[in-house]
């Protein structure tokens, strides 16, 4: 019998004893599915789309107490129908990863190390630098005397990893600041 995750959860209640014995029959796959099912029991289920390539596979995230505890292919998604590649299957480790940076960092001129800083300080300091650089490098008219109203002293790249709504908001901010050097992954 082919036991998928979803129908397994439904039948596991009545077949738990049988499963114990099926181990003796050396078929461990239902047992490992059962163990997986226990792992996500009672977890919140939300859907997401894989953040890697552009296929757009569906993934289910299981979370508990504000933490992701499992990710797996979404069987209802019409493109991937539950399947994932090596990267998509490793989404869990992108989310739950001790190497992630968890606080803003600052590196001073000439320094050889990072220093942890607060968000307020970091964003205040960046805002001041944006204003100073913009005011200094703002070009009202070009060499031909045409009005251009642009900021030639700041450039921006990124990002195809952002959500649509973030991309739109980011371009609005950068364009309002007068930047013309705005680029991202689509160019490379």
């Amino acid at each position: 019998m082919k036991v998928t995750r979803r129908n397994f959860i439904k039948i596991s209640g009545v077949t738990a004893t049988g499963l114990f014995f099926s181990q003796l029959g050396f078929d461990l796959s239902p047992v490992s599915a059962y163990a997986q099912a226990l792992r996500i029991k009672g977890a919140k289920e939300t859907t997401t789309i894989c953040p890697y390539c552009g296929v757009g596979c569906g993934i289910i995230c299981h979370s508990s107490r504000g933490k992701v505890i499992n990710t797996e292919g979404d069987p209802d998604h019409p493109i991937n129908q539950g399947a994932l590649c090596a990267k998509g299957a490793a989404l869990y480790q992108w989310v739950v990863n001790e190497n992630r940076v968890t606080t803003p960092l600052y590196r001073a001129p000439g320094s050889s190390k990072w220093k942890s800083v607060s968000w307020d300080w970091a964003l205040d300091e960046i805002a001041k630098r944006v204003k100073t650089s913009r005011d200094k490098g703002f070009v009202k008219t070009n060499a031909k005397g045409q009005v251009v109203n642009r900021t030639d002293s700041i450039a921006h790249i990124g990002s195809a990893a952002l959500d649509n709504e973030e991309c739109w908001t980011l371009q609005a901010m950068m364009r309002a600041l007068g930047l013309v050097y705005i680029e991202h992954q689509a160019r490379i």
């Binding site: 890697y52 552009g54 195809a160 649509n164 991309c167 371009q171 991202h184």
Partner: peptide
């Protein structure tokens, strides 16, 4: 075109490009 980033289509549509 097989796009390599999950939202490089969207980021292009919203024109994070000069």
């Amino acid at each position: 075109a097989l796009r390599g980033e999950s939202n490089v289509q969207g980021s292009t549509d919203h024109c994070l490009l000069w």
